[in-house]
Design a protein around this nucleic acid. Structure first.
Length: 557
RNA sequence: UGGGCGAUCGUUCAACGGCAGGACAGCGGACUCUGACUCCGUCAAUCUAGGUUCGAAUCCUAGUCGCCCAGCCA
């Protein structure tokens, strides 16, 4: 377990202060997704921050669906989001809410605003509204409907609710300041007419509150103390506060903004992710190359690695784009600690031990983890014919090559020392079989005379091997910032998936879906959540091992 | 050219008027029955210009650069 205390950041400090000076008795946060799409790595940061802070300070975190726009939302997303949050390791307990749970109360708040002369029904069209809002440098002009009487507004708003107006015919607007330099304060729309069924409330309503109106009031209704959101909402804070000041609310939550998470070699915009799915560049929202939580899960990334990643990324108020290598490092760290080891050969070449009896076979006991004995050991079968990795043999090895080559001795991991005596090649010169003799005295992998061998390679007994499919995933984009110059689709990595048929030790067919292993010397793999079966094992490469040899080999002539 | 926010090693986060530090990445080495893990070493930053101060990454002033805002999206 990680015992190092997490570094402090401004959110932690702020909450600690508020607790210390008695501004709040208990911390209440919330994660407020709109159920209109899939959660991705960026959301993971928000989830970890909100649920994590609540857990850390002994408070609670609500899962609240911000479902104020029936045009975009779907109950299927509600279910998917709940599954993802749970998978990430968080629990909202009984605190599952929807903004739509508060529609009646929000309506009453709107009525209260009208009574106070702070809201009015505006019959400007969408185009007229836009034209009168002003620009960044010029103030807007006041709506001709701005000074209607309270009674008239009350009547009109009730008729909006009753469905007497068509979509777009009128809106309810907050009466604030059309000349405000902050455009959010120029009489923002707080209710609009949308005649369509809602994912939670069905056809109960034909008017719906906007985000700005619903969000802060929902926070207040739930007793949220710290409403933590991303930087782009900073401009909305004065409006957030304005509603809470005008209305009779149970408390005044504090909105605090932090920097959104961006990652190199990927995209997180909903639009771009959708394009990847629709163009068939990936196989769905949970394709293992997608930065969605369901994609990361299918890839095999452990949730603990994501939590650790979010912790290491840190929180601040400056925009950032984090190196993908940091995520990969967190994944390797978690998996090195927890993943049992196994052997499989992905690009097989036959190796025949000519000194080993044809019909003989034996089993070697191999540790499942080099450092953690609690992971136990297993029996691995061995015989005269093995599969080894094509990369582990070279007729003309580069300098520094520590693997098999004619005349060289290597260790078959956990088994015997073998010396290559020759090869068989096909018509094109490709090596089809490698011949070796073994040292029977080296059973288990150590020579009795203590001689050192420079290399150790992995292997699978051909007689006992199970066929398996390995999907080798790589980064989805070839550039750090996809689309930085031009269309992001031009930066798609055409080689982000390579599929190969290999052989594995028998244990790999017996494991359940989502089991993770380190295939020694190859990388970390996960039995595919949906496609893996005992009859047809399918493994996804989560991330490769750090590989200092390939870099060095590439430098050599 | 309105308003808001931001600027520290390649990346990211610290340093809260008192020796600019960590992580990732890079580079070099040790160890190794995984060219993994681990360990050691190393490279490397305060946007600019003034000011306040014994002392400034930190405070002040003026710039520069970047991001966000003109949905009846969130």
């Amino acid at each position: 377990m990680n015992t190092t205390t997490p570094p402090s950041h401004f959110l932690r400090e702020r909450i600690a202060e508020d607790l210390a000076r008695g501004a709040v008795r208990e911390v209440v946060t919330r994660f407020p997704p709109e159920p209109n799409g899939f959660l991705h790595i960026g959301h993971a940061k928000s989830i970890c921050i909100n649920f994590g802070l609540a857990r850390e300070f002994g408070g609670r975190c609500h899962l609240r669906f911000d479902d104020t726009n029936p045009e975009k939302e779907d109950p299927a997303f509600v279910a998917a989001i709940k599954e993802d949050v749970r998978w990430l390791g968080f629990d909202w307990g009984p605190h599952l809410y929807h903004a739509s749970d508060y529609f009646e109360r929000l309506y009453q708040f709107a009525v209260e605003l009208i009574h106070k002369g702070k809201a009015y029904v505006c019959q400007l069209s969408a185009d007229e509204l836009r034209a009168t809002r002003g620009t960044l440098t010029e103030p807007g002009v006041e709506s001709p409907y701005r000074n209607r009487s309270v009674a008239e507004n009350l009547d009109l708003f009730a008729r909006m609710r009753a469905g007497e107006f068509a979509e777009g015919e009128c809106t309810l607007r907050a009466k604030i300041d059309m000349a405000s330099p902050n455009i959010n304060l120029r009489d923002p729309v707080i209710y609009r007419i949308l005649k369509r069924p809602h994912q939670n409330t069905g056809d109960t309503w034909c008017i719906y509150p906007t985000y700005d109106f619903a969000h802060g009031l929902s926070d207040a209704l739930e007793g949220v103390t710290h409403s933590i959101c991303t930087l782009e909402f900073a401009d909305h804070k004065p409006l957030y506060d304005w509603f809470l000041e005008q209305l009779d609310v149970p408390c005044h939550p504090q909105q605090i903004e932090f920097n959104r998470l961006n990652l190199t070699f990927t995209v997180t915009s909903k639009r771009k992710l959708k394009t990847l799915v629709e163009r068939g560049i990936v196989n769905g929202w949970d394709d293992p190359r997608m930065p969605t939580l369901s994609g990361l899960r299918r890839r095999g990334v452990p949730p603990a690695a994501i939590r650790q990643f979010v912790e290491r990324v840190g929180v601040s108020r400056s925009e950032s784009c984090v190196d993908m290598s940091l995520l990969e490092s967190c994944i390797r760290e978690e998996l090195d600690r927890t993943a049992p080891r196994a052997m499989a050969v992905l690009r097989p070449v036959r190796l025949v031990i000519t000194s080993y009896a044809e019909e003989a076979e034996e089993f070697f006991t191999l540790a499942n983890h080099p450092k953690d004995p609690s992971l136990g050991s297993r029996q691995v079968p061995f015989c005269r014919e093995l599969w080894i990795e094509a990369d582990d043999f070279a007729l003309a090895p580069p300098k520094g090559f520590r693997r098999l080559t004619i005349g060289a001795e290597v260790r078959l991991r956990g088994a015997y020392l073998v010396t290559c005596t020759g090869v068989e090649q096909d018509a094109h010169g490709a090596v089809t079989t490698v011949f070796c003799t073994h040292d029977p005295e080296s059973r288990g992998g150590n020579a009795p005379d203590g001689r050192k061998v420079q290399g150790t390679i992995h292997w699978v007994s051909a007689r006992h091997a199970v066929p398996l499919t390995a999907r080798l995933y790589d980064r989805l984009f070839t550039t750090e910032h996809p689309g930085a110059e031009g269309d992001f689709l031009e930066d798609v990595n055409a080689d982000s998936l390579a599929t190969c048929q290999g052989w594995g030790e028998p244990m790999l067919a017996a494991c359940p879906a989502e089991a993770r292993f380190q295939l020694e010397r190859l990388g970390y793999f996960c039995a595919d959540r949906f496609d893996h079966t005992q009859k047809r094992p399918v493994f996804n490469r989560i991330v490769g091992l750090r590989d200092s040899w390939s870099k060095e080999a590439a430098r050599r002539p």
